[in-house]
Amino acid sequence: MSVLTILISLLFYASGLILIIGVANRIRIYWRTPSPLVIPTTPAPLTRTGVAARLFGEVVFFQSLFRGNKWTWILGWLFHFGMLLVLLRHLRYFTDPIWWWVDLIQWVGVYAGFAMVAGLAGLLVRRLVVERIRYISAPSDHLMLLLLLGIGLSGLMMKHLVHTDIVSVKQFTMGLITFDWQPLPADPLLIIHLLMVATLMIIFPFSKLLHAPGVFFSPTRNMRDTPREQRNLADWAAKLDETRHSGAGE
């Protein structure tokens, strides 16, 4: 067992733990944060089914972004859905025997890799070229795009230019998830790819990438437009109410 295998294995256990615990903790915080005011962006749905439909539109079609800016929308959508398909394609490294539908979408994932990188490249150009956007961009905004771009490009290069031994790679990943470590092929592109993925996993719970769980907790999107039908009374306000009523009764 090489030092490289041991280091990368330990790194992935650590980054996996940080990702899972970190995101769970963030979701717990989002869940507990009170949102005492009814502030859905109107026109807003009146029913829970309507809210589900609205969130579906947000998550799957990026509805707000579509209404806001078509360029950002098309680039962002290309990137996100390219990445989704690429991630699903990667399930072949984590399932044995491979699920039938993962087998079925392999070819789609190959093209999706290009869509993902094209979208990311476009978003980076936007950040650099559009004056207004460059002005409000923090270093982390650029670095996040560069990191994802690096992951995508190193992956594409392994697929199309400098191949790695994917049977050994799968033995390595299966070894990781079954706690039976297997050697990792020492191909530079593969190591770079894995290091960047681990970095992404580690920074996920501390970065803007949290918009993934966050969108579901967005009050302007997940609330019903029912301020007249229902009184939305926060606990602390209810106490004030009681004292005032008792005061008026005297």
Binding site: K170, M174, T178, F179, D180, W181
Partner: peptide, 15 residues
């Protein structure tokens, strides 16, 4: 202990 277990187990799974 965990590291030791992981290092000693080397039954190669796969094709």
């Amino acid at each position: 202990l965990f590291l030791g277990l992981a290092l000693t187990a080397n039954a190669l799974s796969g094709p």
